[in-house]
Simulated assay, not measured.
Amino acid sequence: MTEISVTLPEKQYQVKIDRGLLAQVGTLVAEQWSPRKIALVSDDNVAPLYQERVATSLTEAGFTVHCYDFPAGEASKSLTVLADLAREMAKDAFNRDDGVIALGGGVTGDLAGFLAASYMRGISLIQIPTSLLAQVDSSVGGKTAVDLDTIKNIIGVFYEPDLVIVDPDTLKTLTQRDLVEGYGEIVKTAALKGGEFWQLIETINSPADIMAHSPELSARSIQYKANVVMADETESGQRQLLNFGHTIGHAVEALADGGLRHGEAVSIGMIALMQIFEDAGRAEAGITAQIKARSEAVGLPTTSPLLTSTKVLDKVKNDKKNRHGHLNLVSLKAIGEPEITSVPSDEIASFLKLPTRDAE
């Protein structure tokens, strides 16, 4: 088993990574929590696969388990669904001594995490991510949120879990598209880190390779993110590096209205941004092609017709990372050499070469 420690000023927790850990959930949770009532939250795709198995393991370990599920998809990451889940917990008499376990992908982790953070002003939380995207990214670092209309993650808080359990065997039930989507975040992290991590990425040439190396890919991604988070928990400084690919990526993802997955949009966003920086002589020649090649090797999209939409500019300007009239853009000078460039909001269209309505 690989164990990664996340140590913050007011919180310390472990990320445990190993095949077959789902069968040990009851034991692992009992090592962390005293007997209590647990809200086991999943979407209606994951619930039939794993919820009963996990609930049984928890029950055998002395916990009282209430299973809740919600419709799968980004649309459920809303205040409405959050209220529905809180209402069910209140009906089942959950109190501050109880806990929430998020069992599922990124939407579940964000939604159930915010549920734990807000129910009775905060109760205990454990993350059990079952998708590659959630395992390598969203389950670690404490970001919890819901969307508002088409604005992603605009309402939320930083709320760290007590434990994260990563079982790579859960990836076997993913569709190939869902598996590959998560790899978009891995390419992002490897490009930021460089070195041996990027060398590993250069050997991944198919979805089968992703599966074969998933424990190491998860461990390397989580360790990098943990190091960044420990240095900057609330994204006031270097944690912004993790937004590489997200500024343009989030805009394209929102405009796709469900047609693009998050990791796919990050892939598109990374490559679009790096081409701009490379063309301007602010990045090593050929770096965009390097990142594009590693994305295309597993079937990730690397461009989108939505990049030519005038609506991209509106989405970018409304990005929640827009601070004090400036937007911080994360790029790479070379693989393993990230930097942050602050651009005034009124210059962002020309800097990113985004189409404007005046150009129509």
Rank of each mutant, 00 (worst) to 15 (best):
T175N: 01
A112R: 04
A208E: 14
P71G: 08
M120P: 08
V136F: 06
G249E: 04
T203W: 13
V107T: 07
I126P: 01
R282H: 11
M270R: 01
L174M: 15
A145M: 08
G99Q: 05
E339D: 12
H250F: 01
S5E: 15
G237T: 10
G269L: 07
V316N: 07
D232Q: 07
T310S: 02
D358Q: 15
Q12L: 10
G194Y: 06
A293V: 10
S221V: 06
N95T: 05
V136R: 01
V46A: 11
D319E: 11
T2S: 12
M230E: 10
I287G: 03
H250S: 05
D110P: 02
V228D: 04
T302Y: 10
S34M: 15
A280F: 09
E360G: 00
V46E: 06
Y68R: 01
I291W: 03
L174I: 13
R294Y: 00
P48I: 12
L174V: 13
D147N: 11
D44C: 14
S78Q: 14
A117C: 04
D43K: 12
Q199R: 15
F94H: 03
P305M: 00
A61H: 03
K317N: 00
S138V: 04
A23H: 12
A117M: 03
W33V: 05
T308C: 10
K225D: 01
V54D: 10
D137C: 10
D43T: 12
L354P: 14
V146Y: 04
E339K: 00
Q12Y: 11
L174G: 09
V140A: 01
A251R: 05
Q240P: 00
W198I: 01
I210A: 02
L28D: 04
E181N: 15
L125H: 04
G182C: 12
S214R: 07
A212W: 08
G258L: 10
F351A: 05
H324E: 15
I222E: 04
L103K: 02
D257Y: 11
V15P: 02
G336I: 07
E74H: 06
S139Y: 05
I348D: 01
A72R: 12
E296Q: 15
T56P: 11
D110Q: 03
V166C: 12
E337T: 09
E31Q: 14
S139I: 05
E181W: 00
E202W: 08
E88F: 08
E253S: 03
S304M: 09
L132I: 08
G26Y: 10
V25I: 14
S138Y: 02
D110R: 03
T303E: 14
P344S: 03
A55F: 05
V41M: 13
D346R: 10
A212K: 08
V65I: 13
S309A: 08
T341N: 11
S206K: 14
I204K: 02
L192C: 07
S139R: 02
V140Q: 03
I340S: 00
T310H: 00
L125W: 06
A93M: 09
L327K: 07
L327E: 06
E181Q: 13
T144G: 08
G109F: 07
V252P: 05
Y183N: 04
G109V: 07
L255T: 02
G122Q: 07
D84G: 11
V54T: 13
